[in-house]
């Protein structure tokens, strides 16, 4: 069970219709690869975020499959075109079954 897992997102508060906005996300997570050994010589079990998705008003924006090569505190930044006022819904899926979510509202003038 990963500790201190906190998602964070940064999205502009408003935009004009059809504008491409920059979406930044970060989740604090150790991203233990499962390939390291501890001081006792035993393999440290894999514990990573294995999937990240972003939806806007229910429509899928990105769906990312994540593998053990991704390092601590995965950071994703992408651009999205927004045509209407709405909510970004972000979801991170942990190996241990935990699901972390965050949202961000954006107003289109």
């Amino acid at each position: 069970m990963a500790e201190n897992v906190t998602p964070r997102v940064r999205v502009p508060r408003d935009a004009t219709a059809g504008e491409s906005v920059s979406v930044r996300t970060l989740i604090s997570h150790p991203m233990e690869s499962g390939q390291r050994r501890g001081s006792d010589g035993n393999v440290i079990p894999r514990s990573i975020i294995n999937r990240f998705t972003c939806e806007f008003n229910g429509a899928l924006v990105v769906d990312v499959e994540i593998h053990p090569g991704v390092s601590t505190n995965p950071y994703f930044q992408f651009d999205a075109v927004v045509n209407e006022t709405g909510t970004f819904q972000f979801t991170w899926y942990d190996d241990d079954g935990s699901v972390y979510t965050d949202t961000a509202d954006i107003t289109v003038a």
């Binding site: 201190n4 970060l26 505190n73």
Partner: peptide, 12 residues
């Protein structure tokens, strides 16, 4: 600060 990973430790 959002891009600075050091701020995660500041939060803790």
């Amino acid at each position: 600060d959002f891009d600075n990973p050091g701020m995660l430790y500041v939060e803790q």
